[in-house]
């Protein structure tokens, strides 16, 4: 799946004051690529991937999935797209407290009308949580919860994966586990987009963009990716 953002802008209103999260961002994501978006806190990174995943409507511009404008999709169609084609790892703790680790991972698969237990167990093993399959999230550490979120995002083998600070609060070993899994997904053909300020992630990236004050440096239209490569090296 190819995602193309064409000159998208998002503006929030806080107490009637307009706050521009980012402006006129144009970017494309290809299959098999791991893209990093870096930047300081408040630079608009999270808002950008939330907009790309359709959680925040863009005030202007278009977001196209394989040429289809997601702003034209109704809730059911957009939810279906998220369920089957998008894996999303939100920032912070996102495990569902009422479900066990295994149930958390199986939930997207159940929503898609499948029950991929064998693959769920493979993912559990890949993120090192196989012994905690029947544990509840309140029994897990922060690192384990992040790995759980990563495994859940991958259960339906999505073609696009968004990860918002997936290595936040993780030690080096746990960070490497999560980033390796995401890299493997990219190598298997998924478009992986990671928002992070963790420099350890740079070596996994095929492309790196930087956000600053609501502008995407390395913006495809303006810079034709020329600014990306130096950041990787």
């Amino acid at each position: 799946m190819i995602i193309t953002a064409k000159s998208i802008s998002v503006t929030f209103y806080k107490k009637k004051h307009a706050v521009k999260a980012f402006e006129k961002v144009s970017i494309s994501f290809e299959k098999g690529e791991l893209t990093l978006i870096t930047g300081r806190s408040g630079s608009g990174k999270t808002t950008l991937i939330n907009a790309l995943a359709g959680f925040i409507p863009a005030n202007e511009g278009q977001i196209l999935y394989d040429g289809q404008d997601i702003s034209r999709l109704d809730d059911k169609a957009l939810s279906g797209l998220r369920c089957k084609s998008i894996g999303f790892i939100p920032q912070g703790q996102s495990a569902l407290a009422n479900l066990t680790v295994l149930q958390n991972i199986l939930l997207p698969s159940a929503l898609a009308g499948q029950s991929n237990i064998a693959y769920a167990e493979q993912l559990l093993a890949a993120v090192g949580l196989e012994r905690l399959a029947n544990a509840y999230p309140d029994e897990l550490s922060g690192g384990e919860l992040r790995r759980l979120a990563a495994a859940r995002a991958l259960i339906n083998s999505p073609s696009v994966i968004f990860a918002d600070e997936p290595t936040n609060d993780l030690d080096e070993e746990n960070s490497a586990i999560v980033l390796n899994i995401l890299k493997e997904q990219a190598q298997s053909g998924a478009a992986v987009i990671i928002v992070t300020h963790d420099s350890a992630a740079f070596k996994y990236a095929d492309r790196i963009f930087h956000m600053d004050g609501g502008r995407l440096i390395g913006n495809d239209n303006e810079y034709e990716n020329t600014l990306c490569r130096p950041l990787v090296s």
Binding site: D75, K76, S79, C83, L107, P108, L111, R152
Partner: peptide, 16 residues
């Protein structure tokens, strides 16, 4: 709210 936001990211529609 947070629980339902997470469910939205998984792909739950408003109806579901």
């Amino acid at each position: 709210k947070r629980e339902f936001a997470v469910l939205r990211t998984i792909g739950f529609s408003r109806n579901s």
